Simulated scan of single mutants.
Amino acid sequence: MELKEAVSYAKKIVRDIGIKDVEDKTKDEYLKIFKRIITDPDKILYEGSKGYYYKKKAALRFSIVHYIQMCIKKINSKSLDQVDANKIWDELRYFIDLYKKHAINTGVSPVTTKNPGKSKRKSLRKMPYNWREIMWERCDNYDYKGALAILQLTGARPSEIERGVIVAGDESSDFLEITIRGSKQGKAKRNGQATRTIKIEMRTRVSHGSAKNYLLSQVAYEGHLFVQVNAKRLNDYVRRLSQKIWPRKKNHISPYSYRHQLSADLKGEGCLPPKISMILGHRSILSKKKYGISAQARGNSHIADVTCSSPLRDPQPSRLPWDRLASTKGADARYPML
């Protein structure tokens, strides 16, 4: 394969995989995984669970595009001598061979082993109906009390709590307003919601000692509360607490379990799909499908309303059954709870 032919094929690979817009943190993680894979791709790519295989393959495809683009950029600089040209030619051929052998999407996973004990949906199976209340009552570390309340009421991501969540309201308010700065937006900020404000219903009786009661007591004097906890420490604490309460269970609660549970509750209440997506901080209406099922619903979500910074994206062509009931247009779109 000549250099010109290699460049042409490499560009075809870039078009096939596509240029992914990911955050710097994800990019660094993918490149780190890629450096491990290339030491022995035949072994490292296919060992472990099915879920981890897909993550490694995503890292592989992203990194192939990343390095191919670097090679093409060097070629276009027109300052290559023959030695550099031969080196880039060898690099391109290596990435092309790596793509052909390991990175083409076939639609079938060569790995069938599932990752034990980490499924968010499975973690909710056979859990007590009031598992969130039990976790709340057993939480004796006040460094995590506010974060646990935010998880329970809003399903916020741990990375969003790390960015800081603002709770506003007072004892005379009808709602507690919880403002969340979104994560997983990508460098171009085209994914997810930059901010969303979730209104928690306060007109009904607030149980003493509940998560709502705790947040209300915290904002009573100042009128607002700022909740911020390191994402990894929060994840570790929630898992340790779950293991302490239910030591014999195989699948344990994680911060994302709260997210799945809230989605399940909303689906069980008949909440419109666009509103579920907005509450979870998505830009796509279809993203909510990955979270929770109505059969796992466990009571009232307490969410009255939500406002997001960006409109939702409809699948194209849009023929969704709820389009007749609610429009997803407008940056300040609102959806009533059905």
Score class of each variant (00 low, 15 high):
279 I>G: 04
317 P>H: 05
228 Q>P: 05
297 A>G: 03
299 G>L: 12
246 W>N: 01
262 L>K: 00
264 A>S: 10
273 P>T: 02
231 A>D: 11
307 T>Q: 08
242 S>G: 14
243 Q>S: 14
295 A>M: 02
303 I>D: 03
321 P>K: 09
227 V>W: 03
323 D>A: 15
303 I>S: 05
312 L>G: 01
299 G>P: 11
265 D>M: 10
223 G>M: 06
303 I>W: 05
259 R>S: 01
326 A>D: 09
315 P>I: 04
232 K>W: 09
252 H>C: 06
232 K>F: 08
302 H>K: 15
224 H>C: 10
313 R>P: 00
322 W>R: 03
308 C>W: 00
241 L>D: 04
231 A>Q: 12
276 I>D: 01
281 G>P: 02
260 H>C: 03
226 F>C: 09
284 S>K: 13
247 P>Q: 01
269 E>N: 11
234 L>S: 02
319 R>V: 12
243 Q>E: 15
320 L>V: 12
262 L>S: 02
274 P>N: 05
289 K>W: 11
247 P>D: 01
254 S>Q: 15
323 D>Q: 15
289 K>Y: 09
272 L>Y: 13
320 L>W: 07
259 R>A: 02
252 H>E: 10
317 P>T: 06
256 Y>F: 13
288 K>R: 13
290 K>R: 11
250 K>T: 14
250 K>I: 12
317 P>I: 07
269 E>L: 10
319 R>K: 15
283 R>P: 02
299 G>N: 11
241 L>G: 06
287 S>K: 08
254 S>E: 15
300 N>F: 15
317 P>R: 06
242 S>P: 09
269 E>S: 07
284 S>R: 14
242 S>V: 10
322 W>D: 00
224 H>S: 15
294 S>E: 03
320 L>H: 08
286 L>I: 11
248 R>F: 04
325 L>D: 14
266 L>K: 06
246 W>C: 03
242 S>D: 11
289 K>E: 14
319 R>D: 15
238 V>R: 05
324 R>P: 07
242 S>C: 11
225 L>N: 04
240 R>V: 13
249 K>V: 05
264 A>V: 02
282 H>K: 04
299 G>A: 13
230 N>Y: 04
240 R>P: 11
249 K>G: 00
313 R>E: 08
328 T>D: 05
236 D>P: 10
283 R>W: 00
309 S>L: 00
274 P>T: 06
328 T>R: 07
282 H>N: 11
